[in-house]
Design a protein around this nucleic acid. Structure first.
Lengths: 343, 343
DNA sequence: GTGAAAGCGCTAACAC
DNA sequence: GTGTTAGCGCTTTCAC
C-alpha cells in the first residue's frame, strides 16, 4: 500500500507532521486523543491533514495497536435471501460498535470456505461467523483452537466453547402441522428435500412428532414425497408424478421450503386442484415473494435478521463470561390465503 | 492483532525461525520463494510452521510489501438479488487473480456509502467497485483523485478516468415494447416508478421512442401509471385504482420491474382480468421467481453476473492503457406465458 | 503539551 | 542458500 495505484506515495503521518511543523507523536495524538493536544496545534495538524488529504493506513495501525474492527462471515449462498437477511442483521449489530463486515459465499464448497477462513485469519479479524457447509466443522474448530473467535449460524454448535445461533426446525414443522390440524385436516402430504440436509431431517421429525402427539398414525395420515433438491422445478415434477398415481388425495400439503411450495402450487393448479379449496398449502422460510403470489402463501418464518444480529452480538461479547452460548430461536407461522379457513 | 483473542500471542516468523533453527529471512523465503531454499531447510521450516500453527499476518505483509489482494464493493441493497448476482460476478473474476471481495450495502444512504469508502481507503484496497447512490458521485470522484481506482456499476461514468459498466435501459424498454407491438398490441399501459430514478427515466424514454418509431402517437396509444416506489404493494394499489376509473382498457402492460409486475398481476386477477388473454404483461429484471409464477412472467433480463465480472476485470486491468472504459451491455428479452401469443 | 524513539511482523536488499 | 538488517506507517511509552 505504500504507493497510490499508479500514482505518488500516499501521505503518511510523517508528511503531516512535517507540514504542520510538529512531531509524529503529536499527529497521532490528534488522530487518537485530540483532547490531549492544545487547540492551536490541533488546528494546525488538522489543516495539514486536510491539505495533504491524509488518510490513515489501517494496516500499520492494526499492526502496531492490534485494533481490530473487522468481522468475517461465510454464508452458504449469497444469492439466497435467507442468508442476505442474516447478513444485514450481522451488519446492523456490528455498526453499533463501529465494526464492519467482510462477507463471503462458500457456495457449500468446503474448499472455498477454507480459503476464506484462512484469509480472515491472516487478516486478524475480530472473529468469524459461519454457516458451516457439509463436513466443514473441523476447519472452524481448528480456527477457534488457534485463537480466533467463532460463532456458528443456522447450526447448533457441537462444542461448548463455540457459540451458535440456530432456529428450531422441529418446532417450525410443528407450527405448520398444528395449523393444518387446527383447520380440521386429517390427511397430509409432506413434500420434503433430501435427508442429508439437517433442516429436512429436523422438519420431518417435527411433522411425525406433531401428528403422533395429536393422535394420528403417521403411517396412515401422512404421505411423504421426497425431492432430490429443494427447488421449484423438482417440486413441480414430483407433484405432477404423484398426482397422476394417487387415488385418495390428502387435503393438506406441507412443503420443506417456499421454493418447493411454489413448484407444488404450479403443478396443483396445472392439474386443476384449487388452492386452498381442494388442497391447503404451507411453505417454509417466508421468502419475499411468498406474500406476493396469486394466492399468498402461508409459511413458517424464521427470524433471519435477528439470527444475524444475535450471532454478531455474541461474537462482540465473546470475552464476557458465563453467558448462554447456544441460542435457539423459535420460528413463527405467517398465515395467508393458501391454507384457507377451517374446513 | 499481536495477541490471539483472549489467548497467547500468535506465533510470528521469528518464532518459526527459532523453532526451525534458521533466520527469519529464510522463513520468509520459504513462504514467498520456496524454490530458493534447499529442500532440507524448507522441510524443517515447514515442519516448524505446522508445529506452531503459524499463520501469516496480513497487515504486516501489506505494510511491508504493498501487496494488495482485496477489492471493496458497495452496492445499493445487498438483499436484492440483482446486486448479489453482480457481486457473484465480481467475486468470480477476482478469484481468478486470487483477489477477494469485501462487500458492503449502502442502502442508498450516501453517509453509509461514504463510511465504507473511507474504510476501504484506509485498508488500502486494490480498488473500489460501487453502484453510486443518489448524489454520491462526488465522494467516488474524490476517492479516485486521491489515488484509489474506482469502477462504477450500473451507472455510466461522467468522467473519462473512471471506468463504468452499465446496461442500456432505453434499449431494454424497447425490447419489451417491440415484443408487445410484434404480438399485435396497439394500446399500452406503462407502470413506472419515480422519475427521480435514472432507470425509470431511461426506460420511459425507451417506451416513448419505440412507440414513436413504430408509427404510434404515445399520447394516444400509451397510458402511464406512476408509482411512488417500485414494489408490489404500490403496484397492486395503483392498478386497482386505475382499473376502477378506466373505461377503455389497453391490452398490454409493461412494468418498470418484476416486483411491480407481481403487484399488477395480483390486482388484475383480483379484478377478473385474465393474463395474457385480456392483458399481456411484461416485467423487467427477470428475478428468480419470474419464471415460477402461476403464469410465468415475460421479462427483460440484465446480464447481472457479466456486469459484475466485467467491472472486476476492468478494475484488475486498470493499469493497462488504451482500453474502452465505459462499457454498456444490452439486456435480453425472456418470453414466457404472461405475454401470450399474437392476438 | 510536545518530541524522541522503540517496535508491531513482515519482506527484500545485501552480505557472506 | 542462508543470515543480517533496514524500514513499511503507525501508536505508545517515556522524557522533557
Amino acid at each position: 500500500m505504500p504507493r497510490r495505484n499508479g500514482g505518488p506515495r500516499r501521505p503518511s503521518v510523517t508528511d503531516v507532521a512535517k507540514e504542520a511543523g510538529v512531531s509524529v507523536g503529536t499527529v497521532s495524538n490528534v488522530l487518537n486523543r485530540p483532547d490531549s493536544v492544545s487547540p492551536a496545534t490541533r488546528a494546525r495538524v488538522e489543516e495539514a491533514i486536510e491539505e495533504l488529504r491524509f488518510v490513515r493506513n489501517a494496516s500499520a495501525r492494526q499492526l502496531r495497536s492490534g485494533e481490530i474492527t473487522t468481522v468475517g462471515a461465510v454464508v452458504l449462498d449469497i444469492a439466497n435471501p435467507f442468508f442476505t437477511e442474516m447478513a444485514r442483521g450481522i451488519e446492523d449489530r456490528l455498526a453499533q460498535d463501529d465494526h464492519t463486515l467482510m462477507l463471503c459465499s462458500s457456495d457449500e464448497d468446503p474448499e472455498r470456505e477454507a480459503r476464506f477462513l484462512r484469509l480472515f485469519e491472516e487478516r486478524g479479524v475480530r472473529g468469524v461467523i459461519a454457516t458451516p457447509s457439509h463436513g466443514s466443522l473441523n476447519g472452524l474448530l481448528a480456527l477457534r483452537e488457534r485463537g480466533t473467535d467463532v460463532v456458528l449460524l443456522d447450526h447448533t454448535s457441537p462444542v461448548p466453547d463455540i457459540g451458535s445461533v440456530a432456529v428450531d426446525d422441529v418446532g417450525g414443522a410443528s407450527l405448520a402441522m398444528n395449523h393444518l390440524l387446527d383447520l380440521g385436516h386429517t390427511t397430509f402430504v409432506f413434500l420434503n428435500g433430501p435427508l442429508t440436509l439437517r433442516q429436512c431431517v429436523d422438519r420431518r421429525d417435527g411433522v411425525i412428532a406433531t401428528l403422533t402427539s395429536r393422535g394420528f398414525d403417521p403411517a396412515e395420515a401422512l404421505v411423504e414425497v421426497n425431492l432430490d433438491a429443494l427447488n421449484a422445478d423438482a417440486a413441480d415434477a414430483a407433484v405432477h408424478r404423484w398426482l397422476a398415481e394417487t387415488t385418495e388425495r390428502p387435503t393438506a400439503m406441507f412443503c420443506a421450503n417456499d421454493f418447493t411450495a411454489l413448484g407444488a402450487l404450479r403443478a396443483l393448479r396445472d392439474c386443476g386442484v384449487s388452492i386452498p379449496g381442494d388442497m391447503a398449502v404451507v411453505g417454509y422460510d417466508d421468502v419475499i415473494f411468498a406474500s406476493m403470489l396469486t394466492t399468498p402463501l402461508t409459511s413458517v418464518r424464521q427470524p433471519m435478521h435477528t439470527l444475524g444480529w444475535t450471532a454478531a452480538d455474541m461474537l462482540l461479547r465473546e470475552s464476557e463470561p458465563g453467558r448462554s452460548r447456544q441460542v435457539e430461536f423459535e420460528p413463527e407461522l405467517v398465515v395467508r390465503a393458501s391454507s384457507g379457513s377451517a374446513i
